[in-house]
Design a protein around this nucleic acid. Structure first.
Lengths: 160, 160
DNA sequence: TTCTCTGCAAACGCTTTGCATTTCA
DNA sequence: TGAAATGCAAAGCGTTTGCAGAGAA
């Protein structure tokens, strides 16, 4: 978790919400369609891997806004379910855009050398989770799961 | 993640390292056996669920030391492999004492209402993890996994 | 004595917040 | 017009660090 984030590679999901959908969703929640929000949403649409507030702020093209505004908007967008927050354990929140109807539940494989992020299709087996919940009498169970390792490029670099 | 941590319940693991082992381990790493370290280790031995730096500091009995010293010592103990750091995603580090030879790899089930923590025996299936690593060409793979839900007590409280 | 540790206070990084002003509906 | 959003600056919070003095080996 050290390299600059511009080097992230990422397997993109196929569906990208259109900007129209996004603004419609904003309207439905009686939130205003401001220039900063449009700019933030555009950044998230372009880079579909987890971005920090600072990265989003730096990537704003054309329209600039205060970093505090980025923080505020991402919290708002998360509340509205338009964005999902991820935590890679380094004390910095990261966000990905969601498509409507998609809860965005998935996991990542993060390179501990260069911070490359790969989106993962695997998940903790649902039947195991259900059994675990039942065993301890817990309800409304969920989980956070992220994988870490050394990516192919970094492994080669070390050998060289 | 809101209740006070004194209410944590926890399934204790059977093996508890003796204080003698701990000081021996310190000596081996040519670290000094100071009063604050002994007090911290005693706190960790008494409460065998994940504790924050602040909680450890508050639980110090008899010997008091600076909060910064607690932070420094837990980092040192982690480097030495005597303690394992956990991250429940609330921005606060938590620590558990390890027994020698045990890497402490396990997971938790945390109540989102009262913060009760249950130690979990389940883990992400190793063969799935290996396949995942191979699929993406990653090596030295590891994972972070924590479960969240509503504990039996809190569910009952809500119904009442 | 020497190297490590500690207390204290200050700094750091991420994030939130109060307030006056601007902007969207 | 009125509610929501923004910029700016300050504060909050967990954590780290610089430095001089204290303590273990």
């Amino acid at each position: 978790m050290k390299g600059p984030c511009s080097q992230h590679t990422h397997r993109h999901r196929l569906i990208q919400p259109s900007l129209t959908d996004l603004t419609a969703q904003l309207r439905r929640n009686s939130r205003k369609i401001t220039a900063s929000r449009q700019a933030i949403l555009n950044v998230l649409r372009r880079h579909q891997h987890p971005l920090t507030n600072r990265e989003i702020h730096a990537a704003l093209a054309g329209f600039e806004c205060d970093l505090a505004t980025v923080y505020r908007n991402l919290n708002t967008l998360e509340e509205m379910g338009m964005v999902r927050r991820f935590d890679f354990g380094d004390g910095v929140a990261r966000f990905e855009l969601l498509t409507e109807g998609d809860d965005g539940h998935h996991h990542h494989l993060v390179c501990t050398r260069c911070s490359t992020v790969v989106e993962i299709e695997d998940c903790f087996p649902a039947e195991l989770e259900a059994a675990l919940a039942a065993r301890h009498g817990f309800t409304q169970i969920s989980h956070k799961l992220e994988f870490f390792g050394v990516c192919p490029e970094c492994r080669v670099q070390k050998l060289a």
